[in-house]
Design a protein around this nucleic acid. Structure first.
Lengths: 208, 208
DNA sequence: TAACGATATGACAACCTTGTCACAATTACA
DNA sequence: TGTAATTGTGACAAGGTTGTCATATCGTTA
């Protein structure tokens, strides 16, 4: 947690620090971000930095909490649509992820770097919420299976893993990929097609 | 390229250096590996290191070339089975990746770290071969579509992206994941189930 | 054995990093 | 205005990194 001193700062100044930090954390893994670079860009002295934060991880945590909060508020709209079909909800989830990446590219990139970086560090920062988001996929699938939307021979754990991993891959490619698709528009269409492949892969046969 | 001096070294010594380097590169991203650590563990002096290699990247490239060579020889057995069905070949590809990870965990981890790390660096080291492996998926799918194994409405690019990304995810989870499946055996079954989902997702309907 | 080429070495410069701390400046309040 | 609390500052220590280079040692060959 940043110190009271930090929170008492004029909004303009604290925001400048946060903005620079977001930019730095979106450019490199946590371990490769340096306090020196950050304070130079944010135009604060070394001493001030340590008066605001315990260390770099303190600042990083504060930012990731902000990101998690923002992302959750994004997700809530979709989470509420409990009446929609499983495949509509899955599509909603993927769309939300992509929309979030489009509107908050740096936030999304920070999350992306966290996921691709040291698993131990990821666990430390994101452990609890990661577990929740995995469980969400499992519950979603279980509910769909109970309703007969997906076949009874589909292993929930397997399908949840598959959809969860693809969710990560899809955001990752949007943020850092270039070679597969020519344009974002083409990519969005491709994501829809992937969901259709998934749908056919797990849905209950017509006439069952 | 390492210097002639390095290649003239007694096998025992050069192998010791390579072994330590493999261990280091399997433990952290290239940027986080230090020459100091490496020479300490390999019991060579700083001066010697620079007599063998231009810098750390020189050594890294030499090792990744070794890895690529080893992996290719692994793949060749499967690449030859041109008469097998598309889904059998896809399964063979995934199996090969997993078998490689099981028999060469450090090699696989080095590749994994390269893929999850800085895209620019990845491109520099692996660019050409990455393109080839993507193209391989595309060709495989195109051929399957021509044979009528997969539906004509399936977009090859989309499916190739999907299968390629899952291939990466599957190896990654084997190497670093822990939370989804209890045991490697359970995971191997799950991989089979994923391929079945893919199969149903893209295969031509019976009776077409 | 002597001499020459190949190989090994670690001190060194130059540069980076983090966290601390004595002190300076500013602000708030009486 | 004067005092006290808060906030700002950059030099500094201690540690890390890379690449170089003069020097020492080893081996081979004459």
């Amino acid at each position: 947690m940043p110190t009271p001193t930090f929170f008492n700062l004029p909004k303009q100044k604290s925001q400048r620090i946060i903005d620079v930090a977001i930019d730095e954390f979106a450019s490199a893994h946590f371990n490769d971000v340096s306090i020196n670079q950050l304070i130079k860009r944010a135009e604060i002295s070394r001493g001030s930095f340590y008066q605001y934060f315990e260390n770099l991880e303190d600042l990083y945590c504060h930012i990731t909490e902000q990101i998690a909060h923002e992302k959750l508020s994004y997700l809530h709209a979709y989470l509420e649509k409990k009446d929609a079909s499983f495949f509509e909800r899955l599509k909603g989830l993927y769309s939300t992820g992509l929309t979030f990446a489009m509107t908050h590219p740096k936030y999304a990139q920070i999350g992306n770097l966290l996921f691709k970086g040291d698993p131990v560090f990821k666990q430390k920062i994101f452990g609890e919420q990661e577990q929740q988001s995995k469980q969400f996929f499992i519950d979603l699938l279980q509910s769909a299976q109970n309703k007969g939307e997906i076949r009874s021979d589909i292993n929930i754990q397997t399908a949840a893993f598959l959809f969860y991993q693809m969710n990560l891959s899809i955001s990752d490619y949007y943020l850092t990929g270039t070679t597969w698709f020519e344009s974002p528009e083409e990519y969005l269409i491709a994501v829809d097609e992937m969901i259709n492949i998934f749908k056919r892969g797990v849905e209950t046969k017509k006439g069952e």
